[in-house]
């Protein structure tokens, strides 16, 4: 039993070396290192990173990357389909879930697929869908995001230096600013109305 802690009570040694110590209503469990014993091996690498394993995984990803263009196309089509279902549903029956998951997936994966700008725009869309109630979602702004991702993919835009990318991002920011301005004006109107009543 490991026992050098004078404040702990009820130390409970397990066969794998795990030790549990009770401190009042809290139990602290020091794992015995079963997983470490199973998989840790000595390494000559000073920082403990298995550079060869990482390089092999990078090489495997490079082999896979030939499929990324098509995978990105599938994800963009899924986003467009989810948006169209959302747009065409009666407002009281709109389910934001599939649209959110489609945009969230592009946010996470598009950079790996070689489309970092699409990832950024999809990230903006997923935040919008996450933070605003479906009833209050500015559908035009959602459409702007979806169209932007579509344009980025169809024009094969992969870096920020591309002039079309600059224009798309500029247009999207203007659209976001318009929505934010409109929302702020509406809130100010509401405050003014409350003060006068």
């Amino acid at each position: 039993m490991r026992s050098n802690n004078t404040f702990a009570q009820n130390e409970t040694p397990e066969s794998d070396g795990t030790v549990a110590q009770d401190f009042g209503d809290t139990r602290v469990i020091h794992l015995g290192g079963t997983l470490r014993a199973k998989a840790a091996v000595r390494s000559s690498d000073a920082v403990g990173v298995d550079e060869m394993s990482v390089a092999a995984a990078d090489a495997a990803m490079k082999d896979l990357s030939g499929d990324f263009q098509n995978w990105m196309g599938d994800e963009v089509n899924r986003l467009i389909a989810a948006y169209e279902v959302f747009r065409d549903s009666p407002p009281d029956q709109r389910d934001v879930g599939p649209l959110f998951r489609a945009s969230h997936d592009i946010r996470g994966q598009a950079a790996v697929f070689g489309f970092p700008i699409a990832a950024e725009i999809a990230g903006s869309l997923s935040k919008l869908l996450d933070k605003i109630e479906p009833d209050y979602l500015p559908i035009q702004l959602v459409a702007h995001h979806v169209d932007s991702v579509k344009a980025i993919y169809r024009n094969n835009i992969r870096d920020y230096a591309n002039p079309v990318a600059t224009q798309i991002i500029h247009n999207l920011r203007r659209a976001i600013d318009r929505v934010v301005d409109a929302r702020q004006r509406a809130m100010q109107e509401e405050i003014r109305f409350r003060r006068t009543t």
């Binding site: 209503d25 809290t26 139990r27 602290v28 469990i29 020091h30 794992l31 290192g33 997983l35 470490r36 998989a39 840790a40 403990g48 990173v49 298995d50 394993s53 990482v54 390089a55 995984a57 990078d58 990803m61 946010r107 996470g108 994966q109 598009a110 950079a111 790996v112 990832a119």
Partner: peptide
Amino acid sequence: KPISAKGLYARIAKVVLNPRPFIRTE
């Protein structure tokens, strides 16, 4: 995300080589 080989390996190494103690409270 975006996921990378180095990032994933680092997380695996951390949970295997330096696991944190577990805490049990109410």
